[in-house]
Simulated assay, not measured.
Amino acid sequence: MLNIFDIVKLTKIDHKEIDSNQIVVTDGNGKPNAILTELLNDVVSNMRIFVDMNEVYSVDDLMRELSEHTPLPSDVLEEYEKVLREPIYNINFVPKRGQVEVIVGEG
């Protein structure tokens, strides 16, 4: 099963890596999960600043890079890891908004 990291790593919009404001976490009914979305947006922002995603192939790789290249405390990195490992059930592209909805949990 794919997880959120896989989607962040593989998804491109107009041939560019997704930006933090382009990804939203929702439940199976399409209701946004504000907590996971905010946490994921923070992860993606820090990835874009501190990590070359061409050199990262797994959540473990990303966590290692973030711990080496950011001043983030270990508890924050643990939360990042949790959201990145969250299994996804579906993905929905919203072209008009340039967004990707990552669906976690069944409807």
Rank of each mutant, 00 (worst) to 15 (best):
Met1Glu: 12
Met1Ala: 15
Met1Phe: 08
Met1Ser: 15
Met1Tyr: 09
Ile4Arg: 13
Ile4Cys: 15
Asp6Lys: 00
Ile7Arg: 04
Ile7Ala: 14
Val8Ile: 13
Val8Ala: 13
Leu10His: 05
Leu10Asp: 12
Ile13Leu: 15
Asp14Val: 12
His15Gln: 13
Lys16Ile: 03
Glu17Asp: 14
Glu17Ala: 13
Glu17Cys: 00
Ile18Lys: 08
Asp19His: 08
Gln22Pro: 12
Gln22Asn: 09
Ile23Glu: 04
Ile23Asn: 08
Val25Glu: 04
Val25Tyr: 02
Val25Pro: 06
Val25Met: 09
Val25Gly: 05
Val25Leu: 15
Thr26Met: 01
Asp27Pro: 09
Asp27Phe: 05
Gly28Thr: 01
Asn29Leu: 05
Asn29Thr: 07
Gly30Thr: 07
Gly30Asn: 01
Lys31Asn: 11
Lys31Arg: 10
Pro32Thr: 02
Asn33Pro: 03
Asn33Met: 02
Ala34Val: 06
Ala34Gly: 06
Ala34Trp: 01
Ile35Gln: 12
Ile35Phe: 15
Leu36Ser: 12
Leu36Val: 01
Leu36Tyr: 13
Thr37Gln: 00
Thr37Leu: 00
Glu38Met: 14
Glu38Phe: 04
Leu40Phe: 01
Leu40Glu: 02
Leu40Gln: 02
Asn41Arg: 07
Asn41Tyr: 04
Asp42His: 03
Val43Asn: 08
Val43Tyr: 05
Val43Ser: 07
Val44Glu: 09
Val44Phe: 11
Val44Gln: 07
Val44Asp: 12
Ser45Arg: 06
Asn46Lys: 10
Asn46Ile: 10
Met47His: 02
Met47Arg: 02
Ile49Lys: 13
Ile49Trp: 07
Ile49Asn: 04
Ile49Ser: 08
Phe50Val: 10
Val51Ile: 05
Val51Tyr: 08
Asp52Ile: 05
Asp52Lys: 00
Asp52Asn: 10
Asn54His: 07
Glu55Lys: 09
Val56Trp: 05
Val56Phe: 03
Val56Thr: 10
Tyr57Met: 11
Ser58Trp: 08
Val59Leu: 02
Val59Asn: 06
Leu62Asn: 01
Leu62Phe: 06
Met63Cys: 05
Met63Asp: 08
Arg64Glu: 15
Arg64Lys: 08
Glu65Cys: 03
Glu65Tyr: 06
Glu68Ala: 13
Glu68Cys: 07
Glu68Asn: 14
His69Lys: 15
His69Asp: 14
His69Gln: 14
Thr70Arg: 04
Thr70His: 01
Pro71Phe: 12
Pro71Gly: 10
Pro71Ile: 14
Leu72Trp: 02
Leu72Ala: 09
Ser74Met: 13
Asp75Thr: 14
Leu77Phe: 09
Leu77Ser: 00
Tyr80Cys: 05
Tyr80Asn: 02
Tyr80Arg: 03
Glu81Val: 03
Val83Asn: 10
Arg85Val: 02
Glu86Asn: 02
Ile88Thr: 11
Ile88Cys: 12
Tyr89Met: 11
Asn90Gly: 08
Ile91Thr: 12
Phe93Ser: 09
Pro95Leu: 01
Lys96Cys: 00
Lys96Trp: 01
Arg97Ser: 08
Arg97Leu: 10
Gly98Leu: 04
Gly98Ser: 03
Gly98Met: 03
Gln99His: 04
Val100Gly: 11
Val100Pro: 14
Val100Asp: 11
Val102Phe: 00
Val102Cys: 02
Ile103Pro: 03
Ile103Ser: 03
Ile103Asn: 04
Val104Gly: 04
Gly105Trp: 01
Gly105Val: 01
Glu106Met: 09
Gly107Arg: 14
Gly107Pro: 15
